[in-house]
Amino acid sequence: MSFSQSHLLGIEPLSPSDITAILDLADQYVDLNRRDIKHSDALAGLTQINMFFENSTRTQSSFELAGKRLGADVMSMAMQASSIKKGETLIDTALTLNAMHPDLLVVRHPHSGAVDLLAQKVNCAVLNAGDGRHEHPTQALLDALTIRRAKGRLHRLSIAICGDIAHSRVARSNILLLGKMENRVRLVGPPTLMPSQIDEFGVEVFDDMREGLTDVDVVMMLRLQRERMDGGFIPSEREYYHRYGLDAEKLSHAKDDAIVMHPGPMNRGVEIDGEIADDINRSVIQEQVEMGVAVRMAAMDLLARNLRVQPPDVMA
């Protein structure tokens, strides 16, 4: 099992075999996490720092748990509350933390590219936990693992990603990952929430949800990110729910065994009907959360192995 990267900044630089390496190892960690004793020493002695410049409960706790289960020393910092308020720049903050010799740095930032910038300035492995509208690679990987386990494969599937594509880093990472693994990706949403020239990413774009969901294997809903809206992208929540909210009728256009996904947190009654979200026969939303911990364990484990790689002994 080989993994070519020294950071996990996005899906874009990953090869299909990198993706498969993470998912295969994550499968093993799913088993570990279901045992009574959920512990390994893969990261023992290593220090993991979580820097979240943007609010997060789910991703941050998932990374924290993943590190702790692998035996790392984990520290989480809510950056909004700290030095940023005192005017320190991102790079100075990074250099300060770098001086404490972390091995793994998990970063979320509200601006696209901020995590790339930070990775250039520190000498540890950096994991992108979401940067602006750019990428959220571990979310796409956990979605991929969920799909692979539910469908038995991660290729030649028809997958609809629905909702606010324009503001979504989850959508970008998923489009890239699912494309690399040779799936058919459809994007469904109002044209005001589609990034420009998105059709050049090898996807099909639909503004009619029923048409977009026809015969798909996977329905991936996105959160309507109201906090990102400048205003005026959609007329109202209720019109959005009427046209793009996932309900039983719209879902009936998908394949009978289609699964429903959502990265959370959900706005019930805005983008998804509560009953569908809770339907254990269709919804894999809880599995996604479970896979999240395993995928993050796998990603950190693989990056840590690359950290520990010694120059090969040519005499052996």
């Binding site: 874009e12 696209s112 590219g113 940067d131 602006g132 509208r133 750019h134 990428e135 880093r169 970008r172 990034p195 420009s196 020239q197 998105i198 050049e200 990413f201």
Partner: peptide
């Protein structure tokens, strides 16, 4: 705005 800005997630 265009493919590059969309890929990089930059306001365009």
């Amino acid at each position: 705005s265009g493919k590059f800005a969309s890929l990089r997630g930059l306001p365009a």
